[in-house]
Amino acid sequence: MTDPASIHTTVLLHEVVQWLRPRPGGRYMDGTLGMGGHSRLIMETAGENAELCGLDRDEQALALAAERLGPFGDRAHLFHLPFSRFEEALDELGWEGVDGAVLDLGVSSLQLDEAERGFSFIHDGPLDMRMDPGFGQSAKDLVNTLKHGELARIIRVYGEDPMAGKIASAILRARQQEPITRTLQLAEIVRLAYPPKMRHTARNHPATRTFQGLRIAVNREIGELESYLETVMDRLNPGGRLAIISFHSLEDRVVKHAFRDAAKGCVCPPRQPICTCGGIPKLKVLTKKPLLPEEEEMRANPRSRSAKLRVAERLGADGEQA
């Protein structure tokens, strides 16, 4: 089997582990296991009797992670589940809570670089983009069935592309001629939707944002994140820490607001002079601003450039630090 370390470089690896402070006997959860980069260092750092609950939607990544985490034997428990369903895994293990949790919301090199997965606009392959190829609609389904308005919304909101309307129009015209089934076929449609001057001066491939938007929509990434954040705080043990790496401004905003609201506790209207809701803060935000990769990491791994890490700590039942 291919060595995972030769395929994927884990982003903000040491920063995540330093903030999580793994310890002997602790229980840790990696909701986006990937090929086990964060998990392996967490377990190595934690030492004796620490346990891991690792989840991923990608069975190929799970197989590689299982090999990488093999030295930890039955202390590493792996599940083929999206991270939004982490409670199923914890309940199966009989864990009430965890001492640390991490999410790395980026797409792995394993997915991006394998043409058959359909994530890449550089290599030709079937237009898929599903992290779990056996579940849900593919990108091919979306680009060939969605109406103009919904397709433009996905490209504009999730892809943050100001050309969304023109790109959606170009896709609709093209699919009237023949179905759009290949990644390079879609990439060329998007490229030609850009004015010639913009094509030549663009820093990135014109299809970059469209592919990002479709990937987020196909995998319901924002909904998954919101669902996770609604429940994970209640499964952190007092003093347990939650570390989340995002690569998209919309994801980072969701994390930022969830942390802020959980740290505030009170949900009374802002103009109400006295709190009547009795809300107690659940979290202490440890990173006032998101942490970014060092220059050396960004040079070595250009895909890390947009990474942002936010960390928070679970407070006790009385809203005080454990």
Rank of each mutant, 00 (worst) to 15 (best):
E160S: 03
E160P: 03
E160K: 00
P162W: 06
P162T: 10
A164P: 09
A164R: 01
G165S: 15
G165H: 08
K166C: 09
K166D: 13
A168D: 05
S169H: 11
A170W: 00
A170S: 11
R173F: 12
R175Y: 08
E178K: 13
E178F: 05
E178P: 04
P179Q: 06
P179S: 09
I180L: 11
R182H: 11
T183E: 10
Q185K: 12
Q185R: 12
L186E: 06
A187R: 00
A187P: 01
E188P: 04
A193S: 15
Y194R: 01
P195N: 08
P195H: 06
P196W: 03
P196Y: 05
K197N: 13
M198Y: 14
M198F: 13
M198T: 12
H200P: 08
T201A: 11
T201D: 12
T201E: 14
A202L: 09
A202N: 14
A202K: 01
R203V: 15
R203L: 15
N204M: 15
H205S: 06
A207R: 00
T208G: 08
T208S: 11
R209T: 12
F211E: 05
F211W: 01
G213N: 07
L214P: 03
A217K: 00
V218P: 02
N219L: 04
E224H: 13
E224S: 12
E224W: 00
Y228D: 11
L229Q: 03
L229G: 04
T231K: 15
T231A: 15
T231S: 15
V232H: 01
M233Q: 13
L236V: 11
L236G: 09
N237C: 14
N237R: 12
P238M: 03
G239Y: 00
R241H: 02
L242S: 08
A243D: 10
I244C: 07
I244M: 06
I245H: 00
I245G: 03
S246C: 07
F247A: 07
H248I: 12
S249P: 04
S249T: 07
S249G: 10
L250R: 04
L250P: 05
V255T: 02
V255S: 02
K256D: 11
H257E: 15
A258G: 07
A258Q: 03
A258L: 04
F259S: 05
R260G: 10
A262T: 07
A262Y: 09
A263H: 03
G265Q: 06
C266Q: 06
C266L: 08
P269H: 02
P269N: 03
P270Q: 11
Q272F: 09
P273G: 02
C275A: 10
C277N: 04
C277G: 07
I280L: 14
P281N: 00
P281Y: 00
P281D: 02
K282C: 13
K282T: 10
K282Y: 08
K282I: 10
L283S: 07
L283Q: 04
L283P: 10
K284G: 13
K284N: 12
V285H: 07
V285T: 14
L286S: 08
L286I: 08
